[in-house]
Write a protein that binds this DNA or RNA. Structure first.
Lengths: 212, 212
DNA sequence: GTCATTTTATGACTGACGGTCACTTTTTTC
DNA sequence: GAAAAAAGTGACCGTCAGTCATAAAATGAC
């Protein structure tokens, strides 16, 4: 009994330390020169030894992946809190898009990390377990969003078709927009944050509604 | 006179060597483990010394940037060859989208390089000169595409609005789609290459047409 | 043809990083 | 309180981007 209680306390402490490492890492990864942040630096900021970091995370990649998961789990929590009004489907869609954009802009500190984990080569060398963690999250988003799309189709508000293609279109458009919003506007002729946001929201709404 | 001729020959040779380096680099960068390809390896494949690479390119980043430019210049050449039929505006749009997608899929060897140069941190540390090279290219694409959009609006085929927002929407959607197509499908619930391509093309067409 | 000058090529060297591992310290167990 | 287990640690290794002193080649004046 005592053994179990102590074991649980230890476990909590262990997890708490893990959060400390993640917090320290995010702080360092959010700034300029993030790519040259070393595990040594993270360890020093978390006030532990370098080796200890590797007791919690198998590699720098795993640490980054865990941060990305934390980011998307937070997004899922937020969108799930949003109420969906079946009598105002299109307005609800737009509100949710804007909420998701806002979440990304409010958590810009994750931008390097999230982008890192989207890299082709990162995905290719990622462990199977990470892949399925991420697929689970993707599935959770789908399961939450699909009923809304179907409801909109039943009401004739958007073109009738399988949800799959709509997802792909939204996914592409949304991720591309985040890339633009996070990158800043030095590299393209497009407008400022607000203009991009309005333009892409309108484009996405038209894409979701589809052609009659 | 002789001096000038020799100087030109030297210059051609110098540029030729530059192409050799770029070709060797692309060959190595297109494969798995591209991120751990060293300048040493590139130099060996080009059969020159490591220092020589740095006589042509100021940094590894510059080499990668030059490859990315080559990729997008190639795309511009291809789309400009495509004829635009003012009586078949929407069909022309779709044909051009598909052409651009095909170009990306036909040149997958550039995928790591192009993605690398889109990274937020790469853009942040990039030299001003690179930035403007890229802006020039972006401008060339706009100047080529805008008349088509305007023609479509005059014919009432797409919703009337400034071209800016349309660009942003297309840009976001297209880049997001390329990310999906290049990444492979292990990391998302979406379909195979063809399904993604069809879905995104339809989504983009609806987005460009807009809501009446 | 030859020698001085400029241009180009080179690879040993440097500093820094991710990851390992033999060892120390702390905690648990009996 | 001693043995066993768990957690913490930082010196060390191999590797890489980029530098720089030096070598080689090309050029041009005479």
């Amino acid at each position: 009994m005592a053994a179990i209680m102590k074991s649980l306390r230890k476990q909590r402490e262990f997890e708490r330390r893990e959060e400390d490492i993640l917090d320290a890492a995010l702080t360092l990864f959010s700034g300029p020169g993030w790519e040259s942040v070393s595990i040594d630096q993270i360890a020093r900021m978390a006030e532990i030894g370098k080796g200890t970091v590797y007791n919690h995370f198998g590699s720098k990649d795993e640490l980054l992946f865990r941060l990305m998961l934390r980011f998307y789990e937070g997004l899922l929590v937020q969108v799930k809190q949003e109420t969906f009004d079946p009598n105002q489907v299109l307005t609800s869609f737009e509100r949710i898009f804007r909420l998701a954009f806002k979440y990304h802009l409010d958590h810009r500190e994750y931008r390097y990390v999230v982008e890192y984990c989207k890299r082709i080569d990162f995905r290719e060398r990622a462990e199977e377990a990470w892949r399925s963690s991420f697929l689970d999250l993707d599935r959770a988003f789908s399961e939450w969003g699909d009923p809304m799309l179907i409801s909109a189709m039943e009401q004739g508000l958007i073109a009738n078709r399988p949800t799959g293609p709509i997802h792909m279109g939204m996914h592409a458009c949304f991720n591309g927009a985040i890339e633009m919003l996070w990158a800043g506007s030095d590299w393209c002729l497009h407008g400022d944050e607000t203009e991009i946001l309005e333009a892409v929201t309108a484009f996405m709404m038209a894409g979701v509604i589809g052609q009659q």
